[in-house]
Simulated assay, not measured.
Amino acid sequence: MNDQDAYWSADHYQAVASRLSGISLRLVQEADVRPDHHVLDVACATGNAAFHAARRSAEVTGIDYDPVMIEAANRRRDRLRMSVAFRRGDAARMPFPDGSFDRVLSAYGSMFAPEGEAAALEMLRVCRPTGMIVMANWNPDSVITSMFQTLHDLHPVAESIQGIARLWGTAPGLRHLFGPTARIRTLLTHYRVPGTADELASVFADHFGPALCVVDKLGEAAREEIRERLTLLFRKHETIGPEARGVDVGYLHTWISPR
């Protein structure tokens, strides 16, 4: 397993994913998933968007390149007693016929596909002409993009995602990826992650794959430095709501019609 694989195969990934699950729920709501829909969750990880879609009685498939993620998603499915088909596969070479799905979803997953343009074309291919691709991607100004940069500054084993965010998290980048015939609508928005800046920093320092890779390279002492740097970063985006604190996480919400 190389470092890139280790990012997303970390045992604690779901601790992070659960904090961001509300983005996947909003994604499914904005996609207007219905009971008669065939839905694909691309780069599904442990299945947040897939499970939210399945709760609407849609027929749902999740695909991810990482077998550890697929195993974790299957365990969640069995525990929740839900009907979702998870399978391992490459977003750039998906094993589905043309026009298989009414909704193709991706919650900050497909943007990490190594072959970005090929993945975008595959999403277009498997989406029905009358269907829709709906994504939530980190944009260049997102605090999550800044978090990746913070980790990268400590050690390059944690990649910077500025280039990825410019492609998948901006309207011009999406036009480049999906081509001139696709109809693209975007909205810069944010999600309020529950918890204080200190709490969220600890979650990422202790459970986020790239942070764990930095600790592996620099030693255990690096964990506290990561925690301190992320706390300072998240405090700049911390808000106080009617009942509790949260951290505002920006992202680009995108709707794409194949034609």
Rank of each mutant, 00 (worst) to 15 (best):
T150D: 13
F208L: 06
F234L: 10
T231A: 07
D64W: 06
A119K: 00
G163L: 10
I161Y: 01
I226L: 09
N139C: 11
T130N: 09
Q149V: 09
L167Q: 15
T181R: 14
T231V: 07
G246A: 15
V215H: 04
F234E: 12
S83E: 14
R79C: 14
A107K: 00
S57I: 02
R81L: 09
A222T: 11
T46Q: 03
C44A: 11
R81P: 06
H37G: 03
V193K: 03
I256C: 02
M132Y: 06
I133H: 05
P129C: 05
K236A: 15
T196K: 08
A53G: 02
R88G: 04
D64L: 04
P242Y: 10
V126T: 15
G109V: 14
G109L: 11
S110R: 04
I23E: 00
D64C: 06
A92E: 02
R259K: 07
I164P: 03
D206Q: 07
V33T: 01
L25F: 05
H237K: 12
T61W: 02
A244T: 05
M135C: 13
A118Q: 11
A58Y: 01
L105H: 00
Q162L: 14
Y191N: 07
P210Y: 08
V134M: 15
D141P: 08
L121I: 06
F208V: 12
Q29R: 06
I184A: 12
D206P: 08
L25Q: 08
I226Q: 09
R192D: 12
S146D: 15
T231I: 04
T196Q: 11
T231N: 15
G179L: 15
P97R: 04
H190F: 09
A211S: 12
R56Y: 02
E225C: 11
Y191S: 12
E115M: 04
E30P: 00
Y108E: 03
V247D: 01
H253G: 00
G219P: 08
D11C: 05
A53W: 02
V193D: 07
P172W: 14
V16K: 04
G195H: 07
E71Q: 12
A158T: 06
P35R: 00
D90M: 04
M132R: 10
T186Q: 10
F86A: 01
G250E: 10
G173D: 09
A17R: 03
L154C: 10
E159V: 01
A15M: 07
T181D: 13
E224A: 13
D41H: 03
D206Y: 06
P140C: 13
G250W: 05
